[in-house]
């Protein structure tokens, strides 16, 4: 009994509790500043809110458990982006039900191989989009990209990261980032074109 009392009153215990609370508060402050960007990245990667939510929560749990390793001189959002990207890719690898798109696999948008789509030169498919239409189109088009292309183009065009920052998040050379962003844009251009055709032909039928 005496030992238990001593344990309870051990000052080290209170020190641990206060350190933990301080750590939590620090994490929450950083999260409030940067969370929107990271959540948006999760949403765009996952393609729907439920998966985005799961991905985001798992990322935060992982980030918090490795918070000691975060270098405070570097941007917190890039650090979270990197963790999220890794969690996302791990999930994709684990989940055998989801098919990971590769350049050899047929594109889910048009059914053609990616190589064929990349070689296409059709222009200005986006002129036919209205503001409302492009909301859904963007998500559908992004969902059809191979995961690494998707990450690169989201980080570049939606989150406004530099190639240097993307290279750090994706853990790859600068040239690879440039290539992934470019290939993603070519695929998106083609995807917008196909989705736009489907949408407008559907409208005409109605």
């Amino acid at each position: 009994m005496i030992e238990r009392k001593e344990e309870l009153l051990d000052p080290k215990r209170f020190q641990d509790i206060s350190e933990e609370s301080f750590r939590q508060a620090e994490f929450v402050v950083l999260l409030k500043k940067n969370g929107d960007k990271v959540y948006n990245f999760a949403w765009r990667l996952a393609g729907n809110e439920q998966d985005a939510w799961d991905l985001f929560q798992e990322t935060l749990m992982k980030a918090y458990s490795h918070f000691e390793s975060y270098d405070k001189s570097r941007p917190f959002d890039s650090w979270l982006f990197k963790i999220l990207q890794n969690v996302y890719l791990d999930e994709r690898r684990r989940d055998s039900r989801r098919t990971v798109a590769s350049l050899d696999a047929p594109s889910p948008i048009s059914g053609k191989p990616w190589e064929e789509i990349l070689a296409g030169t059709d222009l200005n498919p986006l002129d036919r989009f209205t503001k409302e239409e492009n909301v859904d189109m963007v998500q559908k088009a992004l969902a059809g990209l191979p995961p690494l292309y998707r990450s690169a183009v989201i980080l570049c065009d939606m989150e406004g990261l530099s190639y240097d920052a993307i290279a750090e998040v994706m853990d790859c050379p600068l040239g690879t980032v440039r290539s992934r962003v470019h290939q993603a844009r070519l695929l998106l251009k083609k995807a917008f074109e196909d989705l736009s055709d489907t949408f407008h032909s559907g409208k005409q039928l109605q």
Binding site: N40, L126, D157, M158
Partner: peptide
Amino acid sequence: LESLRKVKMVLAKAPKKSMPMEWI
């Protein structure tokens, strides 16, 4: 280059989701 610029523009203007504050 112009068509790539349009793709970039569409993505940049796409709506964004905010993190739910109650969870934070």
